[in-house]
């Protein structure tokens, strides 16, 4: 039994099949990476100028800034959250419409498994593509943050990996759901009642200690809050190693459960 599992594992780990799946998305992505990159720079820049600077001025001169934010400027506080929120938005949409396309409209996934590729290869290959997409997003944010004194820190080199983790914590579970869908009817509701509330209440615009007591535990179980806290700590510091480990652990749990569910729904869908 053990030997069978081990050889199965070996096959999996030494197989390049998922990479081939990934390369298909990469060839597509490569053609338009410049416009994608531009988007991942312009959007955070707009948010930073609009919210970070504008609302920042109001908050920093406001009555409660010192109590709530300490020495951190609102600009730095909000800016670092963009690593997580941008990745969440980009990957949620990629895992919804960008993935349903492979099952439903262009049927690329369906074509793949008529080759030696397995549904698990397709799922892992897709996950690689999501990771790359999130990395681009994170790098875009880092480039923008490097423009401002408040956020020009060494941690900007690390934070894009926080984007990858946060992005995957959304992308993989959502892709698992997409794998079980035939239409995009449920996607707007996921955005409206899942993604956007997390964006608004998940600690990006203000610490969740501002939320009413009953709402704070809800924020604790959202991947976004852990992503925001992780990315923020990577750049600004001030978080204990234990807390960092906790955020990392939760995000990794979302990722691995998501990937597991994704292999299941992809297999059920493509083998049906």
């Amino acid at each position: 039994m053990g030997a069978v599992m081990r050889s199965g594992m070996q096959r999996r780990l030494t197989s390049w099949a998922p990479v081939r799946v990934y390369l298909r998305d990469w060839t597509f992505f490569r053609r338009m990476w410049w416009s994608v990159m531009l988007g991942s720079i312009i959007q955070p820049l707009l948010f930073l100028l609009g919210v970070g600077l504008g609302i920042g001025e109001l908050v920093d001169n406001g009555p409660a800034a010192a109590n709530v934010l300490g020495d951190t400027s609102y600009f730095a506080f909000y800016a670092t959250a963009l690593f997580a929120t941008s990745a969440m938005f980009v990957l949620s949409q990629e895992a919804m419409w960008g993935t349903l396309d492979g099952f439903q409209w262009s049927s690329a996934h369906v074509a793949m498994i008529s080759t030696p590729l397995t549904p698990t290869d397709v799922a892992i290959g897709k996950a690689l593509h999501y990771a790359m997409r999130a990395l681009f997003t994170g790098v875009g944010v880092a480039l923008v943050l490097a423009l401002f004194d408040d956020t020009r820190r060494v941690g900007l080199l690390l934070a894009p990996f926080g984007s990858v983790l946060t992005g995957l914590a959304f992308g993989l579970p959502i892709a698992a759901w997409t794998g079980s869908r035939t239409t995009d009817a449920s996607f707007p509701a996921i955005l409206r009642f899942g993604v956007i509330p997390m964006f608004l209440f998940g600690g990006a615009f203000y610490p969740i200690t501002q939320l009413p007591g009953w709402l704070q535990p809800v924020a604790w179980i959202t991947p976004l809050w852990h992503g925001v806290e992780l990315c923020r700590a990577m750049v600004l510091g001030g978080t204990s190693p234990a807390q960092m480990a906790m955020h990392l652990g939760v995000l990794l749990a979302f990722c691995s459960l998501g990937l597991f569910a994704m292999t299941k729904t992809f297999a059920a869908r493509l083998r049906a």
Binding site: V59, G62, A64, V68, F201, F205, Y206, L211
Partner: peptide, 11 residues
């Protein structure tokens, strides 16, 4: 979100 969180910060 603004009512719950930002209002107190901005005044």
């Amino acid at each position: 979100s603004i009512r719950i969180g930002l209002s107190a910060l901005v005044g």
